[in-house]
């Protein structure tokens, strides 16, 4: 029974990869065609129409991929009768889910479809790495992970991570376009991307939105550590890097709200903060020592 769920989960993850790949291709075609669609063009223009069409296909593929991946993550959990956050394979597929989920959620309110190209390839690469390198058979949790705090702590950490990385992608896009503009006009394909100011605001709002959640995740982790390991804070490498990420984003928010940083400086600080999160996930999980050694590698 449980093995069937695990197989089903694998098939769902593979299928979602196919859909993310299709979404990536559609986004690539969209970006290529968009070169011929300048903002002055009327909406009846042939090029505009087919660009719009392929963009919708791309988003639809991404939504389908998201749904299948979601089902895959749920099936993985069912296969072991627990939440699917017991090793790095499971963290990665859930992280990919959170990242594309954050993108799709933000897409409803903001015009960030141009980011789809980046999101689909990032998700595809994450899932590819998870399947090829990180995969471990589904197994029950070790005693230290058997706690309701696993659900609270890990889910909030994964969601925060997804949104932080999205903000990072936007900040990177800001820096890239900023450089392009400082050398003259934007290139044709970049013309339909949002203004620098909008990008700046958007990455800030994403961070401001998710920073309390990250704070909560760290505190939930501390409460859990108190009951599992006998101390709420012990400068374990994972804890240390979570703290560094927290400090970096706190500095980012202060720099923006109180000191009034905008634009390039803020984007660099945002990128730095996001990279501490990524470092924590990749380096500390795989090569680090300490108590958070649940990667299963």
């Amino acid at each position: 029974m449980s093995r069937n769920w695990a197989y089903l989960s694998n098939y769902l993850v593979y299928s979602s990869m196919a859909l993310y790949a299709l979404s990536f291709i559609a986004h690539a075609v969209e970006t290529a065609w968009a070169v011929r669609v300048t903002t002055e063009d009327s909406k009846k223009n042939m090029d505009y129409k087919r660009t719009e069409k392929v963009a919708r296909i791309a988003t639809a593929m991404m939504i389908l991929g998201f749904i299948l991946l979601f089902a895959g993550v749920v099936a993985r959990g069912l296969s072991a009768s627990r939440v699917p956050w017991g090793n790095m394979y499971e963290f990665s597929i859930t992280g990919a889910l959170a990242f594309s989920g954050a993108y799709l959620a933000a897409l409803r309110k903001h015009n960030i479809r141009w980011l789809g190209l980046l999101v689909s390839i990032a998700v595809l690469l994450t899932l590819g790495t998870a399947v090829a390198v990180l995969y471990r058979p589904s197994a029950p949790l070790v005693p230290a992970l058997k706690s309701t705090w696993l659900v609270v702590h890990v889910s909030t950490a994964i969601i925060s991570g997804g949104v932080f990385l999205l903000a990072n992608a936007i900040a990177a896009a800001y820096l890239y376009l900023d450089r392009m503009e400082s050398r003259g006009e934007r290139k044709a394909w970049a013309k339909r991307l949002p203004s620098l100011e909008d990008l700046d605001q958007l990455s800030y709002r994403l961070v401001a939105f998710v920073f309390p959640l990250w704070t909560f995740s760290v505190i939930a982790g501390a409460i859990w550590a108190e009951s599992a390991w006998g101390r709420y804070w012990g400068w374990d490498p994972k804890e240390t890097w979570a703290f560094i990420t927290w400090v970096a984003y706190a500095a980012y928010l202060h720099a923006r709200v109180t000191v009034g940083w905008r634009g390039r400086k803020a984007a660099w600080l945002c990128l730095f903060a996001g990279s501490t999160f990524l470092f924590n996930y990749v380096y500390v999980n795989i090569w680090g020592t300490g108590k958070h050694t649940y990667s299963g590698l």
Partner: peptide, 14 residues
């Protein structure tokens, strides 16, 4: 000081 605190906690993790 806040940024320095972040940087200062790095060596302890390595």
């Amino acid at each position: 000081l806040l940024l320095l605190l972040g940087v200062a906690s790095i060596p302890g993790s390595l």
